[in-house]
Design a protein around this nucleic acid. Sequence first.
DNA 1: GTCTATAGTAAGATAGAC
DNA 2: GTCTATCTTACTATAGAC
Lengths: 194, 194
Amino acid sequence: MSERTNRRELIVDAAAALFKEQGYTATSIRQIADQVGCTEAALYYHFKDGKRALLQAVLEDHAPSLMAILQGCEAAESLHELIICIGKNLSRAVNKENLDNFRWILAEFPRMSAEERAAVHSKHLEFEQLLAVQVERFVEDSALARKIAWTMVCAGFGFGQLFFNLEMDKLVDFTPKDLTEVMAMALPAVINMC
Amino acid sequence: MSERTNRRELIVDAAAALFKEQGYTATSIRQIADQVGCTEAALYYHFKDGKRALLQAVLEDHAPSLMAILQGCEAAESLHELIICIGKNLSRAVNKENLDNFRWILAEFPRMSAEERAAVHSKHLEFEQLLAVQVERFVEDSALARKIAWTMVCAGFGFGQLFFNLEMDKLVDFTPKDLTEVMAMALPAVINMC
DNA sequence: GTCTATAGTAAGATAGAC
DNA sequence: GTCTATCTTACTATAGAC
């Protein structure tokens, strides 16, 4: 992990935190400057195009990290084991930092430029392709493997949004472990059916 | 469907549209007034507590409608048929209106009051309970039935967010039909395992 | 109920001194 | 590089006439 101690980086980090907490439009240049301990003018020195340039820097530096989900999954020896492994990682990945990232990107997406959207897309595609590679080890039909991979991604993503960002975990007893168990029991059955 | 032609209702509808398009903080009272064709002062006559009161009115009147997802599902005669039925409804429910609603609620949730959050929660719980009733027709273990129901909800929700709101549908060929197929093949297998 | 007019505040952005 | 000072614009909200 880099140190990020020079002013430009401090500005990006402060902006990222505020954008994710309050949203892009709700956050003012002044607020970011206060947080960093400098003036608005100093901020405009580092980001000549103002707030929009700051948003782009945040999108580049603070994209949600998905790769941790796949850690250690190469060791799995069946689709069932693979899902259990991903489930364990998911429990760790479902945390404030990561899910605030997702919620924020989802919220700002409609107002992003084509380039900004493309950056978001490539991050997700990259992850799904790595996941698909793992699934393909156990599913010969590669089209089916990709469908299974995307189903897993949808379920995991939906779980994070509903139970963490919408705080359904406070009302309903349904954990990442439960989701994983259902998926681990269910998905391997698909292989034998085709 | 009610007519919603009096000024107060026109204001709420205009506010809802703008909030969902731009976000709450990014939308100004002035913009809403312009859209309706009145002045800001008129708006403050109807909503004495200003912008925040408007937000609450929008949350009450424009909650996303989930019930359409369950339409006709009482006719299903197996878990497989139930999932197929829901999948068909899902294809119709995955539209701009509905998903903009979800994205917006997700985005504003952290800034909602306790009462506002409770309103969001009860909508979701209500839906899940009706879904669980349907699933329980085919799954004796009611704890397992609820896990299956929530897994379906997570997958459906995640699909809507990823493929519609994040526009992954423009890059990846994975349709509501694909998701439904995988779930319909996979989930019934869980029953035989317990 | 709806208007005009305006108060008071905060926003994004820049010029120029150091 | 960072500051002070300032411009312009937009915002929420209210008072008072009609």
